[in-house]
């Protein structure tokens, strides 16, 4: 089974400046592989090269070097486009069409008969939560509603791979929840979802793997659990019925970094990374305390992201 997406040394230079043209490196030798069925998060700060990568994959721009394949075929292949969907960043569509007409038009481009076009348009607009507004011209749509229409049009051909560029942009909390659920439904159907975002909580909630792009270069890539597993920075132990002497005993042996009362007789104890939480727990329970929870304190994706971006500063001029 071919990879859903295979990117090999993809590079894009632009020329900037009118009087003194100079090259600008938007993407620098990106190599990446996404397996079929994955929900893949493509993360990075603004200007990192995420949209450039997606435009290269859609052949809206052409690479200076490198190549990319989708489902084992070159990205320019029109047969590939029959099997993919794409939501551009800040999508905009034809003002004079209604949402229904837009989806029917796009469904027609895949060769569907008129009845099938209508059925698809109706089903997808239901799925993204566009109700009676579907008969309004798109010029009357808010940004969030256009985003929903954008997602619907990306799914009009039941794609095997979808590319979402900032899918949560412009959505309210309910809209974000709906789209998160939609992405999970797509994953359950076996669809590969490749989405770019700078909202890390979305990636944390949805992705099996992520790549972090910074300054046009790949800063990190892997499974979230792998990227964050080795960065346990301590433990949080929550107990009840904690007696003073038990706490004093534990403190004397120097294994508790902090104690936070939580109310209703519960306490959260911070344990350093090199402590043995099992020993502390045994010690406390021997003195009558009851275990409520024990959790590793890991670096969040946000902290990891900030660290990676700081370690990979942008060097965009080709002369650098």
């Amino acid at each position: 089974m071919p990879a859903a997406i295979r990117i090999d040394g993809l590079t894009k230079h632009y020329t900037v400046g009118f009087w003194k043209p100079r090259p600008y490196l938007a993407l620098d030798g990106l190599t990446l592989e996404v397996e079929q069925g994955e929900v893949f998060g493509f993360l990075g700060p603004n200007g990192a090269g995420k949209t450039t990568t997606l435009k290269l994959l859609m052949q809206l721009i052409f690479p200076t070097a490198g190549r990319a394949e989708i489902l084992g075929r070159p990205v320019g292949d029109v047969d590939v486009r029959r099997r993919i969907g794409y939501l551009p960043e800040h999508p905009y569509f034809y003002d004079y069409l209604t949402a229904e007409e837009l989806l029917q038009y796009f469904a027609g481009l895949f060769g569907h008969a008129p009845a099938e076009r209508r059925a698809r348009a109706s089903r997808l607009l239901d799925e993204v939560g566009i109700g009676a507004e579907r008969r309004l011209q798109l010029r009357k749509f808010s940004k969030g509603m256009l985003q929903r229409v954008g997602i619907a049009q990306a799914l009009v051909n039941d794609p095997d791979v979808v590319f979402f560029d900032e899918p949560m942009s412009g959505l309210d909390p309910i809209g974000r929840r709906d789209i998160r659920q939609l992405i999970l439904r797509l994953r359950d159907r076996g669809c590969t979802v490749f989405f770019s975002s700078h909202v890390l909580s979305d990636a944390e909630a949805l992705c099996s793997r992520v790549a972090i792009l910074s300054g046009g270069r790949l800063a990190a890539e892997g499974q979230l659990s792998e990227l964050l597993a080795f960065s346990v920075r301590g433990w949080e132990l929550v107990v009840s019925d904690l007696r003073d002497e038990a706490l004093e005993h534990a403190r004397r042996v120097g294994v508790i970094a902090g104690v936070t009362p939580l109310g209703q007789g519960r306490f959260a104890l911070d344990l350093p990374r090199d402590s043995s939480p099992e020993r502390v727990l045994a010690d406390l329970t021997a003195h009558g305390a009851q275990l409520v929870s024990l959790n590793p304190l890991r670096e969040t994706l946000e902290e990891y992201f900030v660290r990676q971006v700081a370690e990979h500063p942008a060097t965009r001029g080709l002369d650098q």
Partner: peptide, 14 residues
């Protein structure tokens, strides 16, 4: 200019 071409050219339209 309005970027509607992005969605259109990602469909099987040469």
């Amino acid at each position: 200019e309005k970027r509607s071409i992005y969605s259109l050219l990602s469909k099987p339209v040469r």
